[in-house]
Computed example of a mutant assay.
Amino acid sequence: MIDRRSVLAGAACCALAGCGSRFKSYDGPEVTRILVQKDGRRMHLLHHDQVLKTYRIALGYAPLGDKRHEGDGRTPEGRYYIDRRNPNSEFHLSLGISYPNRADIAEAAALGKPAGGDIFIHGRAGRHRGKGRDWTAGCIAVKDREIEDIYAMVREGTVIDILP
């Protein structure tokens, strides 16, 4: 028979296990740049020229070519900045990318379409596992445990270069 103390101890253990925060701390070298290589499906966090971490990534569901307009399923290419952090992301955690810039807006406008926005580096939030190699609407996705590390390491204002 289970007594009251056992039940309380079990509940305390469950509560503490739930405290395993997705918000980690980082005290290593500053991430000065993010380099995304779309063709190799890799993202590198750099401290100047030194690679600190490398991650396998998923891209937009139409991965070839630069993003031209909203809804094209492509991940943008070019130099952008991390411009926001979303701790309440539908995709576990996310870091916003400063897409679209003026050139992106002009390119989309020339096609008679909006440029779109809301491009992020984000996790999978569990339910997006097994969706295939490239499944986002234009974002850069990593595993949930990886976005926790990236979220801790990368600050707003960090340069992100997305190469074809």
Rank of each mutant, 00 (worst) to 15 (best):
S98C: 11
S98K: 11
Y99V: 01
P100N: 05
P100Y: 01
N101Y: 01
A103P: 07
A103H: 09
D104H: 02
D104L: 00
D104K: 00
I105S: 12
I105V: 14
I105Q: 14
I105T: 14
A106L: 14
A106M: 08
A106E: 15
A106F: 09
A106R: 14
A109M: 08
A110D: 15
A110N: 15
A110E: 15
A110C: 12
L111R: 13
G112Q: 08
K113F: 03
K113P: 10
P114T: 14
P114Q: 11
P114K: 13
P114A: 10
A115V: 00
G116P: 11
G116R: 04
G116H: 04
G117D: 02
G117H: 00
G117N: 02
G117W: 00
G117P: 01
G117R: 00
G117A: 02
I119N: 10
I119W: 03
I119F: 03
I119M: 04
I119L: 04
F120V: 04
F120Q: 12
F120K: 06
F120P: 06
F120M: 11
I121L: 15
I121K: 14
H122L: 03
H122E: 06
G123W: 10
G123L: 04
G123P: 09
G123I: 03
R124C: 11
R124Y: 06
R124A: 11
R124G: 07
R124S: 13
A125G: 08
A125C: 10
A125R: 08
R127D: 09
R127A: 08
R127I: 03
H128I: 00
R129N: 12
G130E: 04
G130K: 07
G130N: 09
K131Y: 05
K131R: 14
K131D: 04
K131L: 12
K131I: 00
G132A: 03
G132W: 00
R133V: 05
R133G: 01
R133W: 01
D134E: 04
D134A: 01
W135D: 02
W135K: 02
T136Q: 04
T136E: 02
T136L: 03
T136Y: 09
A137D: 06
G138F: 01
G138R: 07
C139N: 06
I140H: 05
I140C: 07
I140T: 08
I140Q: 07
A141E: 11
A141F: 10
A141M: 11
V142P: 07
V142T: 09
K143S: 10
K143P: 03
K143L: 14
D144T: 06
D144P: 10
D144Q: 08
R145Q: 09
R145H: 10
E146P: 06
E146D: 15
E146F: 04
E146M: 05
E146S: 09
I147N: 06
I147P: 05
I147Y: 06
E148V: 04
E148A: 11
E148D: 15
D149N: 08
D149C: 07
D149H: 07
D149R: 11
I150D: 11
I150G: 10
I150C: 07
Y151G: 15
Y151I: 09
A152M: 04
A152T: 02
M153D: 13
M153P: 15
M153L: 12
M153A: 13
V154P: 14
R155Q: 12
R155N: 12
